[in-house]
Computed example of a mutant assay.
Amino acid sequence: MTSVAIIGSGFGGLAAAVRLKQSGVEDLVVFEKSHDVGGVWRENTYPGAACDVPSHLYSLSFAPKAD
């Protein structure tokens, strides 16, 4: 039996799944209605948009660091 269900595989859903796994929760499932992960960033386009904050403020602290 699954103990945790995460709805959506956007930024927040994936972060929740990673943190839960890091906390020892193995029986979780992520539901996504679309064909791929990404949430709103996959579904929408933002012509001319730019990042308005330093990237370290809008990144996952547990993501692998680039060399």
Rank of each mutant, 00 (worst) to 15 (best):
I6T: 02
R42P: 02
W41C: 05
Y46W: 07
D27W: 02
G39L: 07
L60K: 04
R42F: 02
L57K: 15
V37F: 03
Y58Q: 12
S61D: 13
D27A: 04
L20A: 02
C51K: 14
G39I: 06
K65E: 08
E32A: 04
V37S: 05
G8S: 03
A66W: 14
H35F: 10
A50V: 14
G8I: 02
S23W: 02
D52Y: 06
P47A: 11
P64G: 06
F62M: 15
I7W: 07
S34T: 12
G8P: 03
F31G: 04
H35I: 13
G12I: 06
A66L: 14
A15G: 06
V25C: 07
I7K: 13
V18L: 09
P54W: 07
L20M: 05
A15F: 02
S59A: 15
G38Y: 02
A15S: 12
G10F: 01
F11S: 05
D36W: 11
D67C: 09
P54F: 08
G10H: 05
F62E: 15
K21N: 10
S61F: 15
S34N: 11
F11Q: 10
L57Q: 14
G10N: 05
E26L: 07
S23P: 00
V40F: 08
K65Q: 11
N44A: 07
V18T: 10
D27V: 01
V25S: 00
W41I: 04
C51D: 09
C51S: 10
N44S: 03
S55Q: 08
V40P: 00
